[in-house]
Nucleic acid binder design. Structure first.
Lengths: 349, 349
DNA sequence: CTGAAAGCGCTTACAG
DNA sequence: CTGAAAGCGCTTACAG
């Protein structure tokens, strides 16, 4: 059976498609359609199981009620939770979300942005791996509302929702130092322009300085995001054997997970031999042995805020070109991997 | 600047939109457009940064190059990995994916199916929580290709990609019994019509019988999927205190995670006091203390196969109404939570 | 109170 | 080799 269209209803009722359209879009009263007629239209529409063709409507109105979501990798819990939160929120407002995985590839990301725009999305939420200005300028020129999450582009005025990376890293480094282990190594991932990593590194350095500890560049290591499993062992060996570090701060959950696995394999005791901490909390850190001290990011909130702002922009039209920049606070989850907590628990026994 | 359309190019070149359309869809040769003209069209299109309006094309052709994905919850790693795999595959073929979280709510799911169809998706991949026949009949009537993943609807002929739930549960129960702990409790989640759970329960029962162990209904407990954290403690207490169980087989990763947390809290030693095992492997199980023995599901493969089949159906049109039913094999990851492995390792010291 | 008509931007039979 | 025209299914100014 063919799908019923506006015309079908109109012809069966002997009225015009125009009228049917008005009634079905709840503009019947406004347009002064008689209650009687409205009821007839609605009844028949229901009976025929009429569903407006969303494509046709979008083509005509220019609004697709769809937003695009570009993240690095949906299988990373960080993005998965954010994606869930965005979809939940979007569906509340009748919006659907198309998602894509950029895999931290800025070329891919650019293509995805174009693809999504071609699809007629009303707005975009992007955890951008883009290097910047150029892409953002194009985006702004396209007049399509968008909000960045997790990372922002320095020097470019765009709306974003991020977390307080600096403070989180600062606090965590403080915590590490407070346990007396002043040789703190830092591991972060590239692409190196990621603002998340930059802010966290800064927080780490400032915390060291505050404690009068000189920043030692040899203790700061980078690993490409797609080579974590290959390169982690090497870095760890150097840090442990050559630099005699006392603790490691992993700047994302993947690094920490890979690091933990290896440290266990090396038979290094955590936290006795070495303390570790992570940025971004995942379930695993509450269950691992030992449990991992980490910086908790408000993932659900990130998604909610991002959609909220995007929605405002979509509704507001050109007028709402106002730039909204949200920095959400983070929290420390102190567990056993840095010693302080375990020592406390043991002394309580 | 306004987006350029076919017409813009046509008028600037003094040709018809028809011709431009032919050329840009690489049907120039077929239609016998002169090489010369083709080049002019393509050059201008590139210069004007022409992007065909996907909506208009979809409206006209009836193909949107979009598929819909309905899963229970993208923040569950099981679905996230599958979703990643589907999107990877889809983008290879120029398809985009709209995803929705049904949260195991069959009413929501039904609405989502309608929504997605209204959006003009070319096909659907669904981890269905539906009770069945009625919904599937509607889906089939809508003539839109779809493939089920993870669960199927018993007695309804549809294409699906699932795993060998029966065998996985059978093997795992065998393994549990082989360690000498014959009082094996089983925890599963409702909605109770989920075929995954049913097959796993069957596998468990058959394994018991094979070992001459009577199935004890008191050892089989169900928990609503959205009440796991609230109800787990109660069930566990009863099982441990009243039933004196020796091991627990958790039928999904959420149950196992919640169970592990509580068992640790109760200060029960795993596996000395109690063995545990899980269906569906997640990272956490390799890091927890002890590591958790689990059934590994080929998640990436599920996604790939599902898209592959869906794609065939989309391409094949009505003719490919062939029903494809794929049951992927699972694997056991034997770790420390059931004793056998740990004992082996210790004896090796 | 209601309708005829244009148009969103494509594609595709049809005609020459 | 190329073009005029219809049509996908809506919405919306315009007219009466």
């Amino acid at each position: 059976m063919k799908k019923t269209s506006l015309k079908d209803i109109a012809s069966q009722l002997g009225v015009s498609p125009t009228l049917v359209s008005f009634v079905l879009n709840d503009r019947g009263d406004e347009k002064g359609v008689s209650k009687e007629t409205q009821k007839r239209v609605k009844t028949l529409a229901r009976k025929l199981n009429f569903k407006p063709n969303v494509l046709a409507r979008s083509l005509r109105t220019g609004s697709s009620k769809t937003i695009g979501l570009i993240i690095a990798d949906i299988s990373n819990n960080f993005y998965a939770v954010i994606a869930k939160s965005i979809e939940d929120q979007a569906s509340l407002y009748g919006y659907n979300v198309i998602f894509m995985n950029s895999e931290e590839d800025s070329v891919k990301e650019r293509k995805m942005v174009d693809l999504l725009i071609d699809r007629g999305v009303d707005g975009l939420i992007i955890a951008s791996t883009s290097h910047g200005r150029e892409d953002m300028r194009k985006l702004r020129d396209s007049k399509i509302p968008f909000v960045l999450i997790d990372r922002y582009i320095p020097g470019v005025k765009t709306s974003y929702v991020i977390v307080d990376n600096y403070q989180g890293a600062f606090d965590m480094t403080n915590h590490l130092l407070s346990t007396g282990k002043s040789k703190v190594a830092l591991l972060y991932v590239t692409p190196s322009h990621l603002t998340t990593m930059k802010s966290r590194i800064l927080g780490y350095k400032d915390a060291l300085r505050k404690h009068g500890v000189a920043v030692n560049k040899r203790l700061i290591r980078e690993i490409r995001h797609d080579e974590i499993s290959e390169k982690m062992a090497l870095e760890l060996k150097e840090l442990v054997l050559e630099e005699n570090i006392q603790s490691i701060f992993f700047l994302n959950n993947k690094l920490a997970t890979a690091g933990l696995e290896l440290l266990n394999k090396f038979d290094l005791r955590i936290p006795q031999d070495i303390s570790i901490a992570a940025f971004d909390d995942i379930d695993l850190f509450r269950f691992s042995y030992p449990t991992i001290t980490s910086v908790i990011q408000p993932k659900v909130k990130i998604g909610e805020k991002a959609f909220e702002i995007l929605f405002e922009k979509i509704k507001g039209g050109e007028s709402t070109s106002e730039v909204r920049q949200i920095v959400l606070p983070v929290e420390l989850a102190v567990r056993d991997s840095c010693g302080s907590n375990m020592a406390k628990r043991l002394s309580g026994l």
